[in-house]
Design a protein around this nucleic acid. Structure first.
Lengths: 147, 147
DNA sequence: CTTGGAAGGTTGAGCCCTCAACCACAGGGG
DNA sequence: CCCCTGTGGTTGAGGGCTCAACCTTCCAAG
């Protein structure tokens, strides 16, 4: 009844699982140690920094950062307490809120970025050939939810 | 100074990150909903079930399941409380402990497995061509820590 | 022997996340 | 105009993970 995985699929799946968890762990540890924040918070800051005026509706930010609304809510509360993000009411929808990256938040991101990129290279990019990097992108995009 | 990522690398990295977190989330949600355990616990049961006599030293189990010792310790405590795993002293090293999968634990694993495999197919394997599955394995093995 | 460091494993505090319940507002149909 | 359903966002409880401190046992060097 169940369509089990064959040997190749099994091996690919296990290797992918191991690689992705070890990578996530390595990134989280580095950011936590060097910048005092988890990788998910870093991602929030990055997406905000790339948005026009460094501001984004909470729900748009959640989508951009690949976060649930609830998770983002907790995260932004934390980041706001550090003075890295501010929440403002949204003019055109009174239910909404806009998250704004503060100058302190931008500075914190600038401080954290080099070490993070270095780690991404060490753990991922520098271990792959350019062709593998391309293949990884295609495969990853195929895996991504329906769009 | 910092070697930033170029556009291709950036895109590959972000796609990979998004794919692996969404996959992990999907697996965790399915197992939590259908089997009442997180994916990491499932992995512990799997590795135990594959070991000779369904028993493994704690540290060996931690390595096999890709878990820190501390994490495994907490996990096994939980699994023991459910009656799925038992801890026995290790004959040849009085510091050590051996984790043993109980019959109930094995049964729980058998119940959980089909839904889990189905999910792995839906979210990963069935979205890739056989060639991509092979490529994914090679890439993942290249990413894995030093060996 | 004895001693000192290393390895096996556990523990508890604190943090982050999930899940479900919840409040406030939006906006179209009776 | 008034529901009534859907959307935006928050909250708190509960659970899993990390980190550092800790205890026990091993083992090798003196």
């Amino acid at each position: 009844m169940t369509r089990w995985l064959d040997a190749d699929q099994q091996r690919a799946w296990r290797a992918f699982l191991a690689a992705s968890t070890s990578l996530q762990a390595g990134l989280d540890a580095q950011l936590q140690a060097d910048a005092g924040m988890p990788h998910t918070y870093y991602e929030v800051l990055v997406r905000l920094s790339e948005a026009p005026d460094r501001r984004l509706r909470m729900s748009a930010l959640a989508d951009a950062a690949g976060s649930s609304r609830s998770r983002l809510s907790h995260a932004v509360a934390q980041l706001e307490a550090r003075g890295w993000v501010r929440r403002e009411p949204c003019p055109e929808d009174r239910r909404g809120l806009v998250a704004v990256l503060t100058d302190e938040g931008f500075a914190a991101l600038e401080r954290a970025a080099p070490g993070h990129v270095e780690q991404v290279r060490r753990l991922l990019i520098d271990r792959l050939t350019p062709a593998q990097v391309r293949a990884l992108r295609e495969i990853s995009e195929a895996i991504l939810p329906e769009v």
